[in-house]
Each structure stands twice: as structure tokens, then as C-alpha cells.
Amino acid sequence: MMEHSSSLLIQEGLYRRAIDLLKAPPLEAEGAETKVYRRDIVALARGGYAETLCIQQNRKVEGERLKRWAESAWRNRRMSLAEALDISEYSSKVPVIDSRISRVL
């Protein structure tokens, strides 16, 4: 149980750091999801962070809010945000981040 909780703390810290590095606007900003540079990458980071928060009972509301933001910002036509976040051996689509064009492929 302790190993699982420390893993969540590490994941949460990494997602927060990625969101900070991407200079993502605050969630409260009106229309922020439409004005974000690297929108798909920020949506992917916030979507992963949301999944990490939703696992924790006391932070589920915050996770759901982040998830809604990420889904509204996601514009990739090739795959849904859920598919991009589902990195497993059974998934047929694997997301690749192209830093030249700042898109998730």
C-alpha cells in the first residue's frame, strides 16, 4: 500500500512539473483551452494528471475538473484523449509526441 501511494506522489509531481514547463494557463481562465500553445500536449499532461487524481478518493472532484478541461482542449482527430492516455500492451494506437510541430500523433 505504501509503495502504491509513493508511486502516485511521484506521478503527480511529474505531471505537475510537465504542466508548469508547458506554461499551461490556469483552469479558471475563461476560454483557456482554446488559447493554449501546444494544446494537445497540455491536454495529454492534464488528462494523465486527472487520472492520477481520480484514483484518490479525496481528490476525485479535482481530477474530474481537470479531465473535463483536457477533453475540451483535445483536438486530435486520429485518436481520442482516452486512447492516447491508454498506454498498454493491448492498445493498437501508441501516442508519439512530435516536438517539431508540438502535436500528439
Rank of each mutant, 00 (worst) to 15 (best):
D40T: 00
I87Q: 08
S5W: 09
G63E: 08
N76K: 06
Q11Y: 13
D40M: 06
I55W: 10
L27G: 07
M1I: 11
R38H: 15
V104R: 03
E51T: 12
S92Q: 14
P26R: 02
Y15H: 06
W69G: 02
E33T: 02
L22S: 00
K60V: 02
H4K: 15
A29T: 12
E89K: 10
M2S: 10
V36W: 08
G63M: 06
A82F: 04
R75W: 02
R16M: 14
H4V: 14
L21W: 08
M2G: 10
R103V: 09
E12C: 13
S92H: 12
W74R: 00
L21G: 08
R39G: 05
A45R: 06
L21C: 12
A45E: 06
L85Y: 03
I19M: 02
A45K: 04
K67N: 02
V96T: 13
R103G: 03
E28T: 14
Y90K: 12
V42I: 10
K93D: 15
E89C: 10
P95F: 09
R59W: 07
D98R: 12
E71T: 07
L81W: 01
Y90D: 15
V36I: 13
P26F: 04
K93Q: 12
A43L: 00
N76D: 10
A84L: 07
A84W: 09
A24T: 04
M2E: 13
R68G: 01
R78F: 07
E30Y: 10
Q56H: 02
R39N: 04
P25W: 02
G47A: 01
K60M: 05
E83N: 13
I101C: 13
G47M: 05
G31A: 06
V61E: 15
M1Q: 15
D20T: 12
R100Q: 14
C54V: 13
D20Y: 07
D40G: 00
A29P: 00
Y49M: 10
R59C: 06
Y15T: 03
E71R: 15
L21N: 11
R78M: 12
Q57E: 13
L66P: 00
M79E: 13
R38W: 13
G63V: 06
L27W: 01
T34Q: 09
S99E: 15
Y15V: 07
S6M: 14
R39E: 05
R78Q: 14
L9W: 04
G47T: 05
S5L: 09
E89N: 07
Q11M: 14
G63S: 11
Y90H: 12
E64L: 11
D86T: 09
M2N: 10
R100I: 15
R77A: 08
V61F: 13
L44T: 01
C54D: 04
A73P: 02
S6R: 11
Y37G: 14
